[in-house]
Design a binder for these strands. Structure first.
Lengths: 136, 136
DNA sequence: AAGTCCAATGCACTATTGTTGCACGTATAT
DNA sequence: ATATACGTGCAACAATAGTGCATTGGACTT
């Protein structure tokens, strides 16, 4: 188990107090969160900082974006060994229509997705909606 | 080939001039569109009408929602024989990272998606991103 | 044909989310 | 230590989403 600091540095992200806090918040949550969720968690933090921090995390492969049907983009930490940027890591997400939570189903990967000739798949946004195990 | 009027009525939607226009616009487009796209197409139409019309279409199963990575929700007509509301019609969408267009790949269905025990799948939002045939 | 009713439309407004520019502080490298 | 680059916060703006209310207009009744 390496420290968060090491992990961020390895991804090319400079470590700051803010970033550690945000990372820890994401790590604690089991479900994907919106920027507003983070904002509400620490109310003294500026929205812009959050916005840019998460963008940084995303571009460095620390978090990935998910669009369930709800308004707004959600984010979740990538698994330690996650290769979100690669086509080979097309894992599924599940959005509960009842509790509105979205979780990563990292162990339920889509084996292969065929796209028509001429199309080149790079990554994906795969969300199944329904009722989650807590609500069923 | 039945008329649009019949089609809408069959879905339980009252036919109006506005709704026919909006339906025809969607039918002409090959790709999924945002509300703003529709708004720009006919500039005399009120945004609210668009918003509510599309919501009506969606709830009656005439259009389906797609969330590619871009900000904002997109909509596309369901196929004539589309059962968007059913788990059995989990068709794929393709979002081009170059031209930003999103199209339905209605003939590329996902065979079956397994979700863990306790989860109940109802529908899905499946978007593969990459480069489309026009841009590659 | 007139009147009633209800859904559809349009207007005004508010809320939320996404985004940028700039100023300032703090860390980093030379 | 000094210059430089990066992070943070403030302010403002833009785009998207959503609501309440008054008006219109079609469908239906009598």
């Amino acid at each position: 188990m390496e420290t968060i600091e090491k992990h961020l540095e390895k991804k090319g992200i400079r470590v700051t107090a803010m970033r550690l806090l945000i990372y820890k918040f994401l790590a604690e949550k089991k479900s994907a969160v919106t920027l507003s969720d983070i904002e509400n968690a620490f109310d003294k933090v500026d929205r812009t900082t959050l916005y840019r921090t998460v963008k940084t995390f995303e571009s460095k492969g620390v978090v990935h974006q998910i669009n369930d049907g709800s308004t707004g983009t959600k984010y979740a930490l990538c698994e330690t060994n996650c290769k979100c940027e690669l086509e080979t890591d097309l894992h599924l997400h599940f959005h509960c229509n009842n509790c509105e939570e979205t979780v990563c189903l990292t162990d339920h990967k889509i084996p292969q997705i065929k796209v028509p000739d001429g199309f080149i798949a790079e990554n994906a946004n795969l969300v199944v909606k329904g009722i989650c195990n807590k609500c069923s």
